[in-house]
């Protein structure tokens, strides 16, 4: 270990201990103040450890990352066991086991042995010889998902979207004179609504043309395709903007935690 590493590490440890003690003392009215103090300090430490990656990769970040990966893997595994196996499967098969796990018993249904068998076959993946057996449950999963999604997507993303594209070009139309005399840029005004409908219609059409692979994009087709890519780019821009907003929100959430729950700077 280098000398600077030792200095940094001991500095962090001292800060951690100080924060723990101070936090614990400030929570003295509550139950287990020092445990609470430790948890808050540890959470703050992990937040800062992850933030430190912005400066550069370092052991603190790595520690936080590995802790997260390990804890979440364990969490999902336990959850899978209790929520799926214990809660959904065991009451359907055995009263004795249900009582052992303290879950309410249910009417037995031996159909549930089928998923048990499929689940065990899925585990055959771990064996070199019987690995091919895991393809059967996989085929079941793929087939089931494809079937359900096929109809669902066709209804929601095709048929219903077709009818959503049928938008009237003229809204509340009472002649050109009326249009200009009542012209407004309000979000629910006639002009904006009509413009929105035109954008929807042209956007859908040109976007589809861009993703049409059976014809070379030349001439009028090429123009429509270029409009299509412009519209896609505008959509990506909007998407980008939304993402920035989302990420800033997450940062605000973390900073609020640091300032409020840890440092107590704001109430």
């Amino acid at each position: 270990m280098k000398k600077t590493s030792v200095i940094i590490l001991s500095g962090v440890v001292i800060l951690f201990l100080v924060s723990w003690l101070v936090k614990g003392a400030s929570l003295s009215g509550e139950e287990n103040p020092y445990l609470q103090g430790f948890l808050t300090t540890f959470a703050a430490f992990l937040t800062l450890a992850v933030f430190s990656f912005l400066y550069r990769d370092n052991p603190f970040y790595k520690f936080a990352e590995h802790l997260f990966v390990g804890a979440s893997a364990a969490y999902w595994m336990t959850l899978g066991f209790w929520q799926t196996l214990v809660k959904k499967l065991i009451p359907k098969l055995s009263d004795g086991l249900a009582n052992f796990f303290e879950v309410p018993t249910e009417e037995h249904s031996y159909w549930y042995f089928l998923p048990v068998i499929l689940g065990l076959l899925l585990l055959m993946r771990l064996s070199k010889k019987g690995g091919w057996l895991s393809r059967w449950p996989l085929a079941f999963i793929v087939g089931y998902t494809a079937g359900i999604n096929f109809v669902g997507y066709l209804r929601s993303d095709f048929v219903k979207q077709v009818s959503s594209t049928f938008v009237p070009l003229l809204i509340d139309w009472q002649g050109v004179g009326h249009f200009f005399s009542n012209f407004s840029l309000a979000i629910d005004g006639q002009f904006v609504m009509m413009l929105a409908n035109v954008v929807i219609f042209v956007g859908v059409l040109c976007g589809l043309v861009y993703f049409f692979f059976s014809k070379e994009h030349t001439g009028l087709f090429g123009t429509a395709s270029r409009v299509g890519i412009w519209i896609l780019m505008i959509t990506f821009g909007a998407s980008f903007g939304y993402t920035v907003m989302g990420r800033i929100s997450l940062l605000v959430g973390r900073l609020t935690f640091l300032f409020k729950d840890w440092l107590g700077l704001i109430s």
Binding site: F158, F166, L169, L205, L208
Partner: peptide, 9 residues
């Protein structure tokens, strides 16, 4: 889709 949308429009 395009044909239906144009027809509907």
């Amino acid at each position: 889709f395009v044909v239906c949308a144009v027809a509907g429009f």
